Simulated assay, not measured.
Amino acid sequence: MYGQIRIEHNLSCKAKPRFEEDLGFGRHFTDHMFMMDFEEGKGWHDPRIIPYGPISHDPSAMVFHYGQAVFEGLKAFRTEKDEIVLFRPDQNAQRLNRSSDRLQMPQMDENFVVGAIQTLVRVDAEWVPRKKGSSLYIRPFVIATEAGLGVRASSRYSFVIIMSPVGSYYEEGLQPINILVESHYARAVQGGTGSAKTAGNYAATLKAQALAKEHNCAQVLWLDAIEKTYIEEAGSMNVFFKINGEVVTPNLSGSILDGITRKSIIHLLKEWGIPVTERKISIDDIVLAYENGTLEEAFGTGTAAVVSPIGSLLWNGTPMVINQGNIGDLVRRLYDTITGIQYGRIEDSYGWTISC
């Protein structure tokens, strides 16, 4: 379709980090990367795996000026049987195309995208760590590369995949985190790009994220941009609340990301017979549940952190401590199940993992 993937092996491989130590997140990068180019009238072409290194673009490349950039995030895991698997990569490929469509960027064959990821992981298989809780984070992205100024869609693009061995996303690991409820700044609005995984969405969160850090909070919980009332998502996570036995999460209104871990969590909850509802949730609903003692657990979900228990919400200067700041039973069960499937400790009866 796009041609056979050409592989140029790196003859100067770098020293690998000590995988048994804390890898952090996104600090180290593997020896190779995948690249493929798009040109209007020619389509996607020249798929290749080459040594990891700098990418050169013209200063007028349109990505620098008009922000046509989308990305994905997924992981490769080394199972207890020493096999390497990916978790639901087909979902990432589908979402990459949806994001590209929103930013008027060209689509790609989703099976080819998954195959390219598998091939790159096989080339750099020794970079998949064996330490419990570690994984190989995979970052596919597409950027506009045409040289020229003028507000329009680019006629040239690059598709790139890079990879990084990682430990826990949060320094706290699987420990309850503090979250600041943001009531001034806005992340996205319905009709905007909130449902796309595009770079600009994350740039818009950095100011509030810095304020959260000043309040000893790990993340920001965003409210809707119009009424500043309805909960949307956290900086890098979808959010869930367990209230009086029912799990509720904001519905996909067009301004939040359709998370793959979110989708997996909802599937598990339904299978376990735990009531789960996708609907509009106001911050007032959460405050009321907290005050009357029915707010039992809260947690975020995402590829990077998997499941993160929320220990407290800082709202209007007052912390609401959830479940006495402890990890809830449901959060623990969800985390153990998802990671159990990813690392091969639990049988994958859903077909969510594929081998590399």
Rank of each mutant, 00 (worst) to 15 (best):
Q91R: 06
I346M: 08
S12Y: 05
T229N: 07
I55N: 10
A298C: 14
A116S: 09
A298S: 15
V70K: 05
D101P: 01
L211I: 12
E227S: 13
E227A: 12
P59M: 00
E214H: 11
T277F: 11
R6D: 09
K228M: 02
N326G: 02
R102K: 15
I354F: 01
G67I: 11
T277L: 14
I143P: 09
S155P: 10
D329T: 14
R152K: 13
N178M: 01
Q190W: 02
Q190R: 14
V247S: 05
I310G: 08
V160C: 13
E126M: 04
H9P: 00
V181W: 09
R48H: 08
A305G: 07
V189E: 04
R88P: 13
G194Y: 07
S282P: 07
P17E: 09
R95N: 05
W127P: 02
P47H: 08
G300Y: 07
P250Q: 09
V85R: 15
V85S: 07
W222M: 13
Q209V: 09
C356K: 01
A196H: 11
P319F: 05
Q324V: 00
A76I: 04
L11P: 00
S134L: 00
G133I: 01
T193F: 14
I310A: 03
A234P: 06
N97R: 11
L11G: 03
E146D: 05
V63H: 08
Q94H: 12
F19M: 01
P89F: 08
I49H: 00
A225P: 01
G293P: 12
S154R: 05
K16A: 08
I354E: 06
A69V: 12
H57Q: 12
D124S: 02
Q209S: 08
R333P: 01
E347Q: 15
G293D: 12
S135M: 07
G340I: 10
F25H: 00
G245A: 04
L223W: 04
A298E: 08
I231C: 08
L149K: 02
D22T: 00
L74C: 09
V128E: 01
T145F: 08
A69K: 07
W315V: 14
P165E: 01
E246C: 03
A204C: 09
N97M: 07
I286V: 15
W44N: 09
K81C: 03
Y170W: 05
R262H: 03
R18Q: 10
Q175Y: 04
Y2L: 07
I338Y: 05
T318G: 00
A15R: 09
G300M: 11
T339S: 08
L223E: 02
I274L: 04
G245E: 06
S355I: 09
E297I: 14
L314A: 04
I231S: 06
A144L: 11
A225D: 03
G3R: 03
E214C: 08
G273F: 11
I256M: 12
P176E: 02
E80N: 10
Y157H: 15
G150H: 08
G167C: 01
P54V: 11
E278I: 11
E172C: 04
P106L: 01
K197Q: 05
H9I: 06
T229M: 06
E172P: 00
A203V: 05
I7G: 03
A147E: 06
A61L: 12
E80G: 03
D285H: 12
T145S: 11
D58L: 07
Y137M: 05
I179E: 03
G26T: 01
T30P: 10
L313E: 06
D101H: 11
H215E: 15
R18T: 13
E291Y: 06
K131F: 00
P106N: 03
A144P: 10
